[in-house]
Amino acid sequence: MTFPDAADLAAVGITLKLATISTLALLVIAMPLAWWLARTRARVKVIVEAIVALPLILPPTVLGFYLLLALGANGPLAKLTGHSLAFSFTGLVAGSIVYSLPFVVQPLRDAFIAVGEEVMDAAATLGASPMDRFMSIAVPLARPGFITAAVLGFAHTVGEFGVALMIGGSIPGQTRVVSIAIYEQVEMGRYDGAHALAAGLIAFSFVVLVVVYTLNRNASAVRIG
């Protein structure tokens, strides 16, 4: 047996691809949502906040189960488009986006709140349109929040198991991600293989966190100096 074997390497590749695509999609979705949550005084805000936070407290299998129903062959999406997303990579991405949404929205929302109204008002009186001041003032000032959001979204997607199993189904080379691969190795009694993946995941997470804290420290250092 070669070690780590080709199937495990494929699982690593799929996991990284899944986390990258999901994180990018999440940032695009979460940016306007977080901005709205940070600024609005509408009453519906608490409802939206609760919906966004739901994945934090629901068991991933519950989420995965309903995603499977929604995206599966008999679900509303399949009836509308004729395609089922269940047990496909695209379905896995959709599941990850729902599952990791609070981890991206919440740091962004907090960072946008910290931007404050006064600098935005100042930019308005200096002739900047709403979109202009969002891009030139709010986004750069919220940079630490973007870094935290991206890392949490990425790391959380890498670590997901329940949703990935329910909606992805662990098809080797397509939807079999690292966390599931570890589980399957252990089930077969192949602890060496499980070790290689698990230790790799720990090292990876550690490196990512060190990079983030370094970046965030530099970001705040730049603003002070």
Binding site: E118, V119, D121, A122, A123, A124, G127, L141
Partner: peptide, 29 residues
């Protein structure tokens, strides 16, 4: 809207942009 009125407003607490230098601040408008 505020950005279309062609006004200048000096806030009580200055409200400078903390991520920009003084030069970039005064060139913003």
């Amino acid at each position: 809207q505020a950005h279309e009125r062609g006004i200048g407003l000096v806030f009580q607490h200055a409200a400078l942009f903390p991520h920009l230098s003084v030069e970039e601040n005064i060139l913003y408008g």
